[in-house]
Each structure stands twice: as structure tokens, then as C-alpha cells.
């Protein structure tokens, strides 16, 4: 059943088949050359196709992907560095602006303080002058008043002496006595 009617050219081979009929077809050595020949042809073609066309193509795709991923990572790193720089620049600008504002505020405060001090000083000078003038007037008035008090005391003493003695005292003596009394307290 396994063998179709024998063509003349296959007579030898068929004899071998007949011998192997009961055993393993694998050990029918008449089939070996054919198997090995076709294996060489098909496997050789497979090797050629794979090594020349298919495998390089797959390899290229995988490599390109790895390159792309590496490139993208690099690009991402670059952009991150850029963003970091920008953030740093922003921080710096903010710090500078803050420092400048601080400086301006300080300057203004100092200027105002100086102005206030100057004006205060000027006002104090004016005030001191006025105070001095007033004090001088008070002193003069006091002296005048005290002089008037002495004259009044001398007149009173002369009047008292005239009343008691009946004669008018020497005004010079009265004046001397009043001064002496004023000195004793």
C-alpha cells in the first residue's frame, strides 16, 4: 500500500524499501540522499533569506527603537536642564528684585529719617532761641521788679523813720540801711 506501482527507474530503491518494510522507515537508507539533498536546499535557502534580508531588518528596527529611546531620553534630559536653568534664572531675578526693593525702601527710609532729623533740629533751634529770649525778658522784668521792691522798701523805711522821729532822714543813709538789711536777709 505504501508503494505505488514501481516505475522502472526505481527498481533498486524499491528493493531497499521492501527490505525496510517491517522496520522503521527512518532506517530505509535509500531515502537518505533525497532527505539530505532537500534539507541542504531548503535549509540553505532559509539561512540565506534570514541572514540577508529578514534578520537585518528586524535588527535594524530594534536598534532604531533603542536609538530613538536613547535620543528621547537625552532630549528629555536636555529640556529638563533647560527648565532647571530657567527656574534658577527666575529665582535669581526674583531675589535681585527683592534685594533692590529692599535697598530702595532702606534708602527712602534713611532719607526721610535724615529730613525729619534736620527739621526737628531746626525746630529745636527756633524753640531754644525763643525760650532764651523769653527767659531774658523774665530775668529783666524780675530785676526791674526787685529794684522797684527795694525803692519801695527804702521809701517805706524813710516814711516809717520820719513818722517815728519826726524828722526827714538822710535818703542816702536810708538806702544804705535798706541794702544792709536786704543783705542780712
Amino acid at each position: 500500500m505504501a508503494h505505488p506501482p514501481t516505475p522502472v527507474t526505481h527498481a533498486v530503491e524499491d528493493a531497499a524499501h521492501g527490505a525496510a518494510e517491517g522496520g522503521l522507515p527512518q532506517l530505509d537508507f535509500a531515502t537518505w540522499p533525497g532527505q539530505i539533498f532537500w534539507l541542504a536546499v531548503t535549509f540553505g535557502l532559509l539561512y540565506l533569506f534570514l541572514s540577508r534580508s529578514v534578520l537585518p531588518k528586524i535588527g535594524t528596527v530594534i536598534e532604531e527603537r533603542l536609538d530613538k529611546i536613547a535620543d528621547d531620553l537625552d532630549e528629555a534630559g536636555r529640556l529638563k536642564a533647560q527648565a532647571d536653568d530657567a527656574a534658577k534664572a527666575y529665582e535669581k531675578a526674583l531675589g535681585d528684585a527683592r534685594a533692590k526693593a529692599h535697598a530702595i525702601a532702606g534708602e527712602t527710609r534713611d532719607k526721610l529719617n535724615a529730613e525729619i532729623a534736620k527739621e526737628t533740629e531746626a525746630a529745636e533751634t527756633v524753640f531754644a532761641e525763643k525760650t532764651d529770649a523769653a527767659e531774658a525778658r523774665i530775668r529783666k522784668t524780675t530785676q526791674a521788679a526787685l529794684a522797684n521792691v527795694r525803692d519801695a522798701a527804702a521809701d517805706a523805711a524813710a516814711a516809717i523813720v520820719a513818722k517815728l522821729s519826726g524828722g526827714a532822714p538822710d535818703p542816702a543813709a536810708v538806702s544804705k540801711a535798706v541794702d544792709a538789711a536786704a543783705k542780712r536777709g
Binding site: 533498486v12 530503491e13 531515502t31 533525497g34 532537500w38 534539507l39
Partner: peptide
Amino acid sequence: AGMDLSFTNTSLFMTLSVLLIV
């Protein structure tokens, strides 16, 4: 050279395998 190199069922399956892979 006295060897039978006919295209057989095993040749067919070898060819099929190669065609499938490639």
C-alpha cells in the same frame, strides 16, 4: 548518480517550514 532525489513528502514539509518562517 544512483541516488533518488525525488521531491517527497519530507521535501514538501521542509519547503513548507521554510516558507512559513521566511
